[in-house]
Nucleic acid binder design. Sequence first.
DNA 1: GCTGAAGGAAACGGATAGTTTCCTTGAGGT
DNA 2: ACCTCAAGGAAACTATCCGTTTCCTTCAGC
Lengths: 197, 197
Amino acid sequence: MTEQTGVRRPRLSPEEARERILTAAGEILDASGYAATTMEEIAARAGMAKKSVYRWWPNRIVLIADLLARRSTVHTVPDQGDTRAELLELIDTIAGYTAGADGGQLRLLLGSIDDDPETERTILARIIEPRRALARTVVQRGIARGDLPADIDVDLLLDLWNGLLTYRSGYRRAPVLRSTVQQLVELALAGHTPRLR
Amino acid sequence: MTEQTGVRRPRLSPEEARERILTAAGEILDASGYAATTMEEIAARAGMAKKSVYRWWPNRIVLIADLLARRSTVHTVPDQGDTRAELLELIDTIAGYTAGADGGQLRLLLGSIDDDPETERTILARIIEPRRALARTVVQRGIARGDLPADIDVDLLLDLWNGLLTYRSGYRRAPVLRSTVQQLVELALAGHTPRLR
DNA sequence: GCTGAAGGAAACGGATAGTTTCCTTGAGGT
DNA sequence: ACCTCAAGGAAACTATCCGTTTCCTTCAGC
């Protein structure tokens, strides 16, 4: 008597199935936020049973992390021959990441991981490290041009920039002004950067 | 037949009751972590019903926020006549806040607030702003001595320091080394700080 | 065709938040 | 000394969600 109508099955391929689930999750996340993006909702919207969702992701956190990682486009900052222009573009880009909707989702996601630094590091490696690589490239270009000191402690500089932006947006909830971005750029161009010891 | 034994009541005053609840919550938080600090556990450990807990706090988040705020001692950095020494002590102190257990709890707490910037700001005002006031004092002292530039953008400098430390500890999960603290101090003493425009 | 694995529907077990019910009891007034 | 009533204890309740399991249908490949 149970309504086992089931199965409007074109037999999705695993790739199609995963894609459909992530798409559904993304739509819910954008429309209703992190808390509302539950496994039940995702499965319902993707038109499949929770069982099929759990086939490919072990839990909600990893699923949403995967979603955010895929959506995390790493922008490029093309060589413009102008270090100031490139740095402005770079830091604007980073500010976009941290102040945007997905920046908030990332914060909520990390906040829901209690005592699992391993998962946390994996998430960061897939989302934040690629962005760091971009920043590193731009800074190196500036050094090569002689516009930035050769002995910059790049890691520390990147963490200062990222730290400021995530802290202002995500913790203090203060807006990141255009003038603030400019201040950071001018500071670096003036050689006022942390140095390797 | 219901076991209404209840009531070993010395009739606690509201202050005693609140204190007892916060103490219980703190013990659970320290012993078992954020996720395990549930309203049921808190009530049980405090020896009262959940009803009595909800009488004084509207929800778990505000209760734990209250707890963290009360436990958040603001250290002092006494005038030592030595700006370098004071800055080192200051930044060590901030690093202690962010890398310590309660730094992690604060991060988890903020991560559990979805779409309530009002509550979030309240929490930060009670925990982070007092610390900022301390930092501001120390920086001003350095300026008065002529050891730091007079036109520092103090807000930005404080956010750079706090941002770096929370980001390294809380996001990147990288250790904050003593040498990093020293780098920040030397940078400031060299006048390499953001300036008011 | 036959058969086995994929997968849909739905129930289930276990947590937890926050609410409500019901009853006891002690504090304060008389 | 007694009475009344509000504070508050015990526990059930509603609702939500995670992650698991059961059971059955259907398609794909043999």
